[in-house]
């Protein structure tokens, strides 16, 4: 039921996002363009510009929301998010490296592909660790290490940027945006997202069992190492793909699961779907906000997400009940 409501809200949010833009388009013209009966101009604006942008925001938000819920279930910590495992940062680093060395001039797909390669490199390191260690803390620490290293290399690249154009490209990746995204950008990473989704769904019941801690979950019949592998690789694929569409966007993965968790009785498995939908809605709405705000230069989506998300994150952390974990 909750998922139906959220799904309807997501649909409305995407439609609302399609109504807004530099060319005014009345709902009637939007409806005509949606069913293929609009003017060629309207249809180009809708299908080439607004719909891809809205879908990109939704897909990125949904991936981050789902990854957040999955990682929080695995690590039993409501403050976990895709960034914590260092995959977002490493993916952004991959994209940044491609831009810095001019690969983006060779092919428009170079940066997204590099981001996915970065994400997979990070997930490989994490998966290797997950096979060898039984400690979740170790995984988090490896994530912190990966993030710090990726951040340091990115800072180095910013420092060495040869010209202002490269600099502005780099900033796009670090701040996050869905401006000028095409269906091609989404389609390119869709297989990775679907693979990640399948892995996370396959491990969802084990996330519920982990509510009782790793030892009890093991006793209940959870294959701990397999669960860790599935969630780490699944979240790596999905968040890496999300970064490759929109750059690094934070906090969606923390806030979305937090909002829906009480509505599903705190069951980590049942948190996944509504967290994805809520994450998608949040980012579509944030992107509408980006376009409506009368600022001289359009705000970056990642900046708006952080402006709303960071205070919420602090609030969640402060009112977190002392649970023994």
């Amino acid at each position: 039921m909750l998922n139906i409501w959220l799904g309807a809200a997501a649909l409305l949010a995407v439609l609302a996002a399609c109504l807004i833009g530099s060319t005014p388009m009345a709902p009637g013209r939007l409806a005509a363009a949606l069913i293929g009966a609009g003017t060629p101009g309207d249809e180009i604006v809708l299908w080439e510009i607004r719909m891809p942008r809205a879908m990109a925001a939704f897909v990125v938000g949904a991936s981050l929301g789902l990854c957040g819920a999955a990682l929080q279930g695995l690590l039993r910590n409501p403050l976990a998010e895709p960034g914590i495992l260092g995959v977002s940062a490493t993916a952004a680093l991959g994209a940044t490296l491609a831009l810095f060395y001019g690969a983006a001039g060779v092919s428009a797909l170079a940066a997204p592909v590099a981001a996915i390669i970065g994400a997979i490199a990070a997930t490989f390191v994490l998966a290797f660790a997950a096979m060898r260690t039984s400690s979740v803390v170790t995984l988090i620490l490896i994530g912190v290490g990966l993030s710090s290293f990726a951040g340091a290399v990115m800072a180095l690249l910013l420092n060495l940027a040869p010209n202002p154009f490269t600099l502005s490209d780099l900033i796009n990746w670090t701040l996050g945006t869905v401006t000028n995204r095409s269906f091609g950008d989404i389609g390119l990473v869709a297989p990775f997202m679907i693979a990640g989704l399948v892995l996370i769904i396959a491990a969802r019941r084990s996330l519920s069992a982990l509510t009782l801690g790793e030892e009890a979950a093991h006793g209940l019949g959870v294959n701990l190492q397999r669960t860790r592998m599935f969630i780490v690789i699944g979240a790596g694929l999905m968040s890496g793909a999300a970064v490759s569409i929109a750059g690094a966007i934070g906090f969606v993965g923390i806030v979305a699961p937090h909002l829906v968790r009480p509505l599903v009785g705190y069951d980590p498995a049942r948190t996944l779907a509504p967290a994805a939908l809520a994450g998608g809605i949040m980012l579509v709405l944030a992107d509408i906000g980006v376009r409506l705000l009368p600022t001289p230069a359009e705000l970056r989506l990642g900046v708006v997400a952080a402006l709303i998300g960071a205070p919420l994150f602090v609030w969640i952390a402060m009112k977190r009940r002392p649970v023994n974990d």
Binding site: T211, L212, A216, V222, G265, Y266, D267, P268
Partner: peptide, 23 residues
Amino acid sequence: YLPQMRPLAWPVRVKDVIALGRF
């Protein structure tokens, strides 16, 4: 198996914890 340490990550309901016995 009933381990010595019984942490609880989320404030779930009593019947949900018992339901995990059927995992």
